[in-house]
Design a binder for these strands. Structure first.
Lengths: 106, 106
DNA sequence: CGCTATACATCATATCACGAAGTATCCACT
DNA sequence: AGTGGATACTTCGTGATATGATGTATAGCG
């Protein structure tokens, strides 16, 4: 997928991945893979950004000697998803503008 | 609209604006306004990028003493629009992932 | 004569996805 | 015991890019 387009979907897609149940980095990447492929460095950058924006909270959990950071969505995070839903109408309108055929004289 | 999301739609939207008939900067901004609001500096940056990518050609026309640059879409530009159409399926799939309700236990 | 619209251009800035590289643990295989 | 791969998170540098600010120049209106 086009990188620029991906940019607009990444944040909200990560939030969706932790919406129903808390999750951690590696798992999020796996869950998102069918929809958007992203690297670790990209994900952790996003997670940090969403944390700074108070859209999620973090909780560290010991797991087999290693550290795991579980991410939990906040009200602001849920609102971000709702905002995306609201924007969908605009996106559809743009889609129609871009794909409309100027039939008649071509 | 969210800036990041806008980024993914700008190029293809500009191409759509000149698809049916050649157009120039100021006119393109007006035509796109109902769908995407963008500033002059943004548009001219995009036009230059699309020109470099051979997605459009430019032709200068004298108009009332001033210079007007008319932009014409190329085959590569039309292909870019087609590629966007192809990507639409992926976008829809992401939309469904983001908006799906985890009804049942919440 | 000043203001607004038209029309294009350049620059500096801030944001951001991503590859590369690093640290550290656990498990399977040989 | 040693090797390699999967798991898990972190940091750094780079390139792409949207945008505000600013500048130049003309036409037309009051």
């Amino acid at each position: 997928m086009d990188i620029q387009l991906k940019r607009g979907l990444l944040d909200v897609c990560v939030l969706a991945a932790i919406k129903s149940k808390d999750s951690y980095g590696y798992q999020i990447i796996k869950d998102m893979k069918p929809y958007l492929d992203l690297s670790e460095s990209t994900l952790y950058t996003i997670l940090k950004r969403l944390e700074t924006a108070n859209m999620l909270t973090v909780r560290s959990v010991e797991h087999g000697g290693r550290l795991r950071k579980y991410y939990h969505i906040t009200g602001a995070g849920l609102k971000r998803i709702e905002d995306f839903k609201d924007e969908w109408g605009e996106i559809l309108s743009i889609y129609r503008f871009v794909t409309k055929e100027d039939d008649g004289n071509e």
